[in-house]
Design a protein around this nucleic acid. Structure first.
Lengths: 214, 214
DNA sequence: GGAAGCATGTAAAGTGTTACATGATTTT
DNA sequence: AAAATCATGTAACACTTTACATGCTTCC
């Protein structure tokens, strides 16, 4: 009804969520099909913004409706395939979001830390085992970034995009720092184990050797 | 129907989620009402396991049904109040969860990092502004833990619970490390800004002075 | 007397994941 | 020939948050 918009959408009035910008940004970086976007996201943004295909496809449709993405059917043989590209409106939206000074919310759900928080209910041995597992886990996360994510990030860096690499390094370094921190905690627990026993001590021993940065 | 269970529940067959253990653990640490649990969680576990009262109250009911918590009406004057305590079954459940060697999933949703990932679309000035804001934000998070969370954690440490304090320090240190890392990135960007301009360079400059830990 | 905090809950809306459903193409 | 990958979508379920709804008590 009414006046048709030349870009075919509602003029960008839809409410955009982070996943919307993820899609716009990935298209900008060269991922053109929903499948390719999901694959790229799994190799780069997955650690701080997970997505599923069940989010990607409907959201691509909404972004097209809103005129932020242009869709073109581009079958590969008999296999259907849609190729998306950024419209001027989509590009503006992305830049506006990137320039925003509003503080973006950060949400973490870490069941491991929740366990650690309540670890006083365990005996010393189990506490040490838990902390050891967590350190190993953090180191594994750092290694996974180094092996899976960094190479991809280095590839896009060659096309003038340095931030994917910076973010990957940030992640790897933070995980490595966490692992080292947990190693320090494990050492404290091992040292304390020679004096007092589970649930016993009214903690009063020294702060050990861990150093906060700065 | 048929044989009544002496603890009044279904014998612990309900499916327990992390929020269940959060409640059990908080009751164990001395928070007895739903309100007190929520308040304690906001001051301690909020950063890695956020909860709302709309989760707490129904979940307390389920845990009581399952026989993991015992509920006793304990009004304060005319104001209703329920006091919960751990049953033997609840205590066992908590310990089993704490001892589990299964790797707990970690989920992070960080819109700030998502923006940083796509920051190549911005000009150098705006990139630097973004990174500066993120560093300030991380430093603020570290400060908030130091001011709000650490004092509470030190209080429970006096009762023989050292892990709340360890977790608080971990959080503060990781945020401080992140802030320092982002400062390093900002310096790199400022240095690079004197040579090449936005979107221009095929990144090839040195790795600067940031050091991963270990 | 008003504001802040204590205290408990429900309903609706929003968000996200897993499973379902299908089929072509390429690689081994 | 089978397995992996490319490719697109929907439906059901699970989970969380926000808003609603209410009322007492303590502090200023």
């Amino acid at each position: 009804m009414g006046f048709a918009n030349p870009v075919g959408g509602d003029g960008g009035t839809m409410k955009l969520r982070p996943v919307s910008y993820l899609l716009l940004g990935m298209v900008r970086l060269g991922a053109r099909s929903g499948y390719a976007i999901k694959k790229a996201a799994d190799l780069s943004t997955h650690a701080f913004w997970p997505t599923s295909l069940a989010q990607v496809y409907p959201e691509l449709g909404r972004l097209e409706q809103a005129g932020l993405l242009a869709r073109r059917e581009d079958p590969r043989g008999a296999r259907a395939r849609a190729e998306y590209s950024l419209t001027a409106l989509g590009s503006d939206s992305l830049l506006t979001w990137l320039s925003s000074t509003r503080e973006p919310p950060t949400k973490v759900r870490d069941e491991g830390l929740l366990r650690l928080f309540f670890a006083d209910a365990l005996g010393r041995e189990e506490q040490i085992a838990m902390v050891t597992r967590m350190a190993a886990s953090a180191r594994a996360a750092a290694a996974e970034i180094a092996e899976q994510v960094l190479p991809t990030a280095e590839a896009v860096e060659d096309h003038g995009n340095r931030f994917p690499l910076a973010v990957a390094r940030f992640g790897a370094d933070v995980y490595a720092y966490s692992a080292a921190w947990l190693d320090g905690l494990r050492q404290e627990l091992e040292a304390a184990g020679e004096e007092d026993e589970p649930r016993a001590g009214a903690g009063r021993e020294g702060r050990a050797t861990r150093q906060p940065p700065e």
